[in-house]
């Protein structure tokens, strides 16, 4: 139960895929023209992420290490196709609004990143909640960005008019350039938080600007790889710290004796 809550909090707050890790930027920019589209995309991604995490976690002892990436891609692509057909059948307005970005969930690096970093080496239940947590974090982020763009660009929120009548919509915010500007402000805020945190001496290495920062080294240091490598080293560090603390405590004990 504890691990379930931890995974959810981790996905929504600590490692929020959009605000903290800056992964999956293509859909983030493309579909957030309104809050409802953002929410729809976020939830669609969440369903795919949760299902593929569960499936990969179940098959983790069967998939050989060398062909794991193609195997992950096939699993993810199958779920994306299923979700796409379901959307087409039952929520056609969302299917029309999201268009080509639904099949492109396959190449969303959040999903492959979670499969590599978590689902491939964890039991089924935590993987499920890791997927749901990350998906919820993504949905929250997309809805927020969508809400800001819709509010400034059309003066509405979830298609309900909220701004006073004298408000003139800045329609550039629901067009393509607006997406870049909103994301620019978002990354600037992220930078600021990072700078303030570093001045206070906190560990801010988790906050990053995604693979967008240095694509050439993506395969060495990029999204998925960084997530995998970070985990063991961090765990190792914590263990070392604990050992040191234990040793110090032990020394103090002997001194007291």
């Amino acid at each position: 139960m504890n691990s379930v809550k931890e995974r959810l909090v981790n996905g929504i707050v600590k490692e929020n895929p959009t605000f903290v890790l800056m992964l999956g930027m293509c859909p983030t920019l493309a579909v957030t023209t309104s809050a409802i589209n953002g929410l729809g995309m976020g939830l669609t991604t969440m369903v795919v992420l949760a299902l593929s995490n569960v499936f990969i976690s179940m098959l983790r002892h069967i998939i050989p290490d060398k062909v794991r990436i193609p195997a992950f891609i096939v699993i993810i692509a199958s779920f994306v196709t299923m979700v796409q057909l379901l959307l087409q059948g039952f929520i056609p307005f969302l299917y029309d609004a999201l268009g080509i970005y639904i099949p492109l969930i396959v190449v969303n690096c959040i999903i492959l990143g979670r499969a590599e970093a978590y689902a491939y080496k964890s039991p089924v239940i935590p993987s499920l909640f890791d997927g749901i947590g990350m998906g919820l974090g993504f949905s929250v982020a997309l809805t927020c960005i969508g809400a800001v763009r819709e509010l400034l660009g059309a003066g509405t929120l979830f298609n309900i008019s909220v701004m006073p009548e004298s408000f003139v919509p800045v329609s550039i915010f629901i067009m393509a350039p607006g997406a870049f500007f909103v994301l620019a402000v978002l990354t600037a805020i992220q930078n600021k938080v990072k700078i303030i945190g570093e001045r206070k001496g906190k560990d801010m290495s988790k906050i990053q600007s995604g693979c967008g920062n240095d694509c050439l080294n993506c395969s060495d240091t990029g999204c998925a790889k960084r997530l995998i490598d970070e985990k063991p080293s961090k765990v190792r560090k914590e263990i070392e710290i604990e050992e040191i603390v234990d040793e110090e405590a032990g020394e103090e004990d002997t001194k007291n004796d």
């Binding site: 607006g178 997406a179 870049f180 620019a184 990354t187 930078n191 700078i195 920062n213």
Partner: peptide
């Protein structure tokens, strides 16, 4: 300072 790196590139792209 806070616009260095990614943010200013995104503004340019915009």
């Amino acid at each position: 300072e806070s616009f260095r790196g990614m943010p200013i590139v995104l503004v340019t792209a915009g």
